[in-house]
Amino acid sequence: MPEFRVRARILGRELVLSEDVTSDVYAALSVQFKELTMSIRCAVESIRRCCPNLMGRSRCGRLSSRMSTQCGEVETTMSASSAPADDDDERPSILSKAVAVLRCFSASSRVMTLSDISRASGLPKSTVHRLLGRLVDLGVIERHRSGYMISLEMMTLAATNTAAGLRDAALPYIAALHRWSGRGIHLSVLRGMDLVYLESIAPAKGKGPVHVIGSRTPGTCTASGRAIMAWEFNVEGLTPNLPDPLPKMTPLSLTSVPDFMNQLSEIRRTGLAVERGEEVAGYSHIAAPVLQNNFAVAGLSLTWGIDESVDSRVTDALEATAKQIGLACREALIRTGRPDWFIKEV
Rank of each mutant, 00 (worst) to 15 (best):
W180D: 01
M155W: 14
W180G: 01
L187A: 01
L171T: 12
G139L: 10
G184F: 05
L135F: 06
N161V: 09
S146H: 07
I174Q: 04
V136P: 00
L187H: 03
A170D: 05
L152N: 14
S188G: 05
H186E: 00
L152I: 06
S151R: 11
M155Y: 15
S151H: 12
T160H: 09
D168L: 12
A164V: 02
L138M: 15
Y197A: 06
A175E: 15
V196S: 00
A163P: 06
S188F: 05
T156R: 15
T162F: 04
S181Y: 06
S146T: 11
A163D: 12
A176K: 14
R191D: 11
V196N: 05
P172M: 03
I185W: 03
H144M: 14
S200R: 00
A176L: 11
I174C: 01
H186W: 01
S146A: 08
H178T: 01
A175T: 15
L152T: 13
M149R: 12
M193F: 13
E142Y: 07
G147C: 07
T160D: 03
S200G: 00
L166E: 08
L171P: 00
L135G: 00
T160L: 13
L177R: 01
L195P: 05
G147Y: 03
A176Q: 15
Y197D: 01
G147S: 07
R183G: 02
W180N: 05
R143W: 09
V189C: 08
P172A: 10
S200H: 00
M149Q: 12
L171F: 05
L157E: 10
R179L: 08
R179N: 11
V136E: 09
L157P: 05
M154W: 09
A169N: 09
S200E: 00
T162R: 11
E153F: 13
A176T: 11
A170H: 02
R191G: 11
R191Q: 13
